[in-house]
Design a protein around this nucleic acid. Structure first.
Lengths: 183, 183
DNA sequence: CCCCGCATGTAACACGTTACATGATTCG
DNA sequence: CGAATCATGTAACGTGTTACATGCGGGG
C-alpha cells in the first residue's frame, strides 16, 4: 500500500526512470523502504494506467532508451489524501531477535560470529550515513523545507544505527557470559 | 522463511495451540515478528506434514477442543540448521518516514497530529515493556540462559522505543519550525 | 438476547522474491 | 573477450492481508 507513495515522493523530489528509481531504493530511500526493480516496474505500470504518473520516452545515445516518469496531478492528490489518513505504527520484523531467543535451545556461543557480522554491517551503514550527512547537509541552518525533512529522516537512520550498535554489544556481552558458563 | 522458526522457538519455550500462538504473536513475540492466526494455521499444517511438530488433541470442558503443538526432533534440528546459517540484516520499512519526506510537498504542519499519535503509541509501548521487565526480570542476577536471552531481546525493544521517542520529538520540532515559517 | 472470548478454518487477493531473458556499450 | 552498467521486462512462486464462516459457552 505504500510503495506507490514512496515512488510518488521520489518522483516529486526528482523525475526518473524505473531503473533510476530502483537505484534510489537501493540507496537513500532504501533506508526506510525497499523494493526490487520488478516491483517498481509493475507498480509504475499500474500508476501509469491510473493516471498518477506521466511518461516520456527519452532516447539516449550510447545507452538504451528510457521512460522518464513524473508525477501527474491525480498522483499528487492521491499522495495528499494518503498523507491525511493515519497509518499504523510499523510492525517490526527482526530475524536476529528470533535467533537470539532460539539460541537458548542450542549453544549460545555459536551465535557470536553471526552477531558480530551484523554489528559490522550496522557500523558500516552508520559510517555511510554520517558521510552522507556531511556531504548533503554541511550547513543545517541553510536548508529548505524539503532538505530539512530529508535531514530529519536521515538523523532517524543515524540514531537507529547507533542504538542498534549499542544493543548488539549488549547481546554480545550476554552471549559471551553464557558461553563461559557452559564451558 | 522465518515464521516457521519463530513458531519453533515459541513452542520450545512453551507448547500450545495455534490460537495461543496467535495470541503470543500479539504480545511478546510480536515485538520482533508479527503473524495473524491465518498465517499461523497455514504454517502449522505444513510443519505438521513435514514432521517438525507433533500434535495432541486436547478436549476441554466449557471450551472448544484444541490441538496442542510441540516441537518434534526434525523441527528441532531444522532450527539448529537455521541458527547456523547467516541471515541478512533486516530491511527496515518505515511508512512514517515516507510521510515525513512527502510532507515537503504538502503543508508540513498537517503531519503534526499524526506524528503525535505515533509518539503516544510508542510511549505506551515503552511503558508496557518497562512494566513487563519489572514483572518478568525483577532480579537480573538470578536468570537462567533462556531468560537472559529473552531479557536482552526485551532490552532491545526498550532501547528501540526510547530512541524512537527521541527521534519523534526531533521530527515534531522540525515540523513546528517549518509550520511557523509558512504562516 | 447479543456480544465477547475461545478455537479452527477457507478463499481470494495483494504484495514481495527469485529466476530468467534480452540487448547495447564501456572498461579492463 | 568477459564482466559490469544501463534499461526493461515475463513467469512462477511464496508470503502476508482481508474477508468470511462456524460453533459453543459465559457475562451483562
Amino acid at each position: 500500500m505504500a510503495l506507490e507513495h514512496a515512488i510518488l515522493v521520489s518522483l516529486l523530489e526528482q523525475p526518473g526512470s524505473g531503473y533510476e528509481l530502483a537505484r534510489r531504493f537501493d540507496r537513500s530511500i532504501g533506508r526506510f523502504w525497499t523494493a526490487t526493480h520488478q516491483q517498481i516496474y509493475r507498480v509504475l505500470r499500474r500508476m501509469e494506467t491510473d493516471g498518477w504518473v506521466a511518461v516520456e520516452a527519452v532516447a539516449q545515445d550510447a545507452r538504451p532508451d528510457k521512460k522518464v516518469y513524473s508525477v501527474a496531478a491525480p498522483g499528487r492528490s492521491a499522495l495528499g489524501a494518503w498523507l491525511r489518513e493515519p497509518v499504523e505504527p510499523e510492525t517490526v520484523r527482526h530475524e536476529l531477535a528470533v535467533k537470539i531467543r532460539a539460541a537458548a535451545f542450542e549453544d549460545p556461543g555459536e551465535l557470536i560470529p553471526e552477531v558480530e557480522r551484523h554489528r559490522e554491517s550496522h557500523a558500516a551503514l552508520l559510517a555511510r550515513y554520517l558521510t552522507g550527512e556531511q556531504r548533503d547537509f554541511p550547513d543545517p541552518s541553510a536548508l529548505d523545507a524539503q532538505q530539512q525533512l530529508q535531514h530529519v529522516v536521515l538523523r532517524g537512520g543515524i540514531e537507529y544505527e547507533r542504538m542498534t550498535l549499542a544493543w548488539l554489544d549488549d547481546v554480545l556481552a550476554t552471549l559471551h557470559r553464557l558461553h563461559r558458563h557452559t564451558d
